[in-house]
Amino acid sequence: MTPAPAPSLAAAPHGFLSPTGVEIAFLLVGLVTFGAALITVTTRQLVHAALWLVVALGGLAVEYLLLTAEFIAWVQVLIYVGSVVVLLLFGLMLTRAPIGRSPDADSGNRWAALAVAVAAAVALVWVVADAFRTTWIDLTGPAAGSTRVTGASLFRYWVLPFEALSVLLLAALVGAIVLSRKAKAGTGTEADGTEADGTPPAVPSARKDGAR
């Protein structure tokens, strides 16, 4: 980092305890998000945990909007709220999760986990608040995360990781299909014969499974 913009990193023409409207909105949405996250990890009703996760992830999307990162916000809504939570609900249904309260949702080492989590929270909040006590985000001017800016940087500087990521997603798709296709009990030889060739037969056989 060049020395020239260094003073602007710590430039503080702000009052320390004079929150702006954006900060108040961020704080309120953050409280909702944190509360929803707490309910997600503590509720005893498994389906409710997934639904409170929707609230937490949606609150995070609003936080991204408040930070002027609109493209990330919509990607968050589309992928997390739209597909990940639906996948989790499907998983809950397919593992026959009990509807209603399940008394054994929490493990026996809950208090050790609570101690670890509280210790981590205290340490992280302390370090972060001490390190960035005099740092302000400048939210005025053109948005730092508009779709135009994000797309330009993504396809100008990050093309190769982007393509590698698409290969990763394809591999994950094939892997999920291979892992979750139902092993047939009666026609074992046929299934083994198709699978002995390698991964490519996985997709047609999975499609055959889906058609049944």
């Binding site: 702000h14 954006v22 961020f26 953050g30 960035f132 006590r133 740092t135 302000w136 985000i137």
Partner: peptide, 9 residues
């Protein structure tokens, strides 16, 4: 906006 808000959250 103060950077501490998103960092602490």
């Amino acid at each position: 906006m103060h950077l501490v808000y998103p960092a602490v959250l």
